[in-house]
Design a protein around this nucleic acid. Structure first.
Length: 344
DNA sequence: CAATCGTGGAG
DNA sequence: TCTCCAAGATT
């Protein structure tokens, strides 16, 4: 039976990728260390997040929380503050809990085994593989979106990446290609995926493995990866009241298991005797992955001290001002609203 | 296990 | 304007 040359000896592909990485690795702050703490933080920050989008957050986070102990001892709200604007805020909650796990269960020493790293809150198979391979010589492929794309093109493989078994499937494909240095290989695949084998307009001419790439050879790059499921965003209307008096305004912390959990927000209702204080409103549209939000923010200018105080007492709202809001984490549209309120 | 969780940039 | 999607994890 005739075998395509691409179907044997895949190891040379991995070595080509490593060689390319040696000359083309991006110069990123977390590339200059093997401190598992820093690598862990960077892996969490950059989940579903582009490098340019998360770089400042990463640097600021490391500066404020340079080690596990500092992070574990911090207040949850301050950890959330350093996550402000980054999205997927449960990452901040989990990263804080995981730091406490490391202090309590591992005496403050970052676990060096894949199975142990996997037990940390917010750490899944991808992150455990990345940290263990980069920092401790672990040998698991860090299969992420880049792996799906590069491998599905390399093998012209139709496996649906929205299938829940995609991780296992592409882990096996990765195993065919994976060379000795798994840590560098994992990082190399991410760089190739984001710099060369891009979702749109990939730079196949510059790709170190274009001679091995089946999709490239049959001119079908755009057909891979296959992804059948599309997320549909539903419309959702929210109403907030920007209740303010003498430069101060009212907020509270979200608690329900819903969007923006544990972030701060404005009141979503006012007392009946406040309705005469309404001076206008503004509607902001904001897109989340699964929701198209239409947020109406009603301006309530309270003049009566009694009405102000009664409302706060009844609902246990917190009082802040623009300056104080800098110390709390708000959803992006509310953060924007607060900053714009300066211009009045 | 399919649905859910942000934000911003590219095309 | 609109769609896709980016170093995923959790429930």
């Amino acid at each position: 039976m005739e075998k395509d040359s691409r179907n044997s000896d895949f190891l040379h592909v991995g070595n080509k990728i490593l060689e390319w990485y040696g000359n083309n690795a991006r110069d990123l702050p977390f590339r200059q260390t093997k401190d598992p703490y820093k690598i862990w933080i960077c892996e969490i920050v950059f989940q579903q997040t582009r490098i340019n989008q998360g770089l400042n957050h990463y640097n600021n986070f490391i500066k404020r929380f340079p080690d596990v102990k500092t992070l574990a001892e911090a207040e949850e709200n301050e950890v959330l503050l350093y996550w402000k604007g980054l999205g997927y805020y449960s990452r901040a909650i989990n990263i804080h809990k995981a730091a406490q796990q490391i202090m309590n269960d591992y005496h403050g020493v970052f676990p060096d085994q894949y199975e142990e790293i996997l037990k940390l809150k917010g750490v899944g198979k991808y992150t455990a593989a990345a940290v263990s391979s980069i920092c401790f010589g672990g040998r698991m492929p860090a299969v992420d979106g880049n792996f799906y794309r590069v491998l599905s093109r390399l093998f012209a493989d139709n496996f649906d990446i929205s299938n829940s078994k995609a991780f296992t499937y592409f882990s096996e494909l990765a195993g065919l290609v994976m060379p000795e240095n798994v840590g560098d290989f994992n990082q190399a695949m991410m760089d190739i995926g984001s710099e060369i084998c891009k979702p749109k307009n990939p730079l196949c001419g510059e790709c170190p493995i274009n001679e091995d790439c089946l999709a490239f050879s049959i001119q079908k790059i755009a057909d891979y990866p296959v992804k059948t499921k599309k997320v549909k965003a539903e419309d959702l209307a929210l109403t907030y009241y920007f209740v303010h008096r003498n430069g101060q305004f009212l907020i509270r912390q979200r608690k329900e298991d819903f969007i923006w959990k544990k972030l701060f927000e404005f009141p979503d209702a006012i007392s009946s005797n406040m309705e005469t204080c309404i001076t206008g409103s503004k509607t902001v549209n904001h897109k989340l992955t699964h929701k198209n939000l239409s947020i109406e923010i009603i301006n309530v200018e309270v003049t009566s001290e009694k009405i102000w105080n009664d409302f706060i007492d009844e609902n246990q709202y917190l009082i802040t001002d623009v300056e104080g809001s800098h110390e709390k984490s708000f959803p992006k549209p509310l953060e924007n609203y607060i900053q714009n309120s300066l211009k009045d």
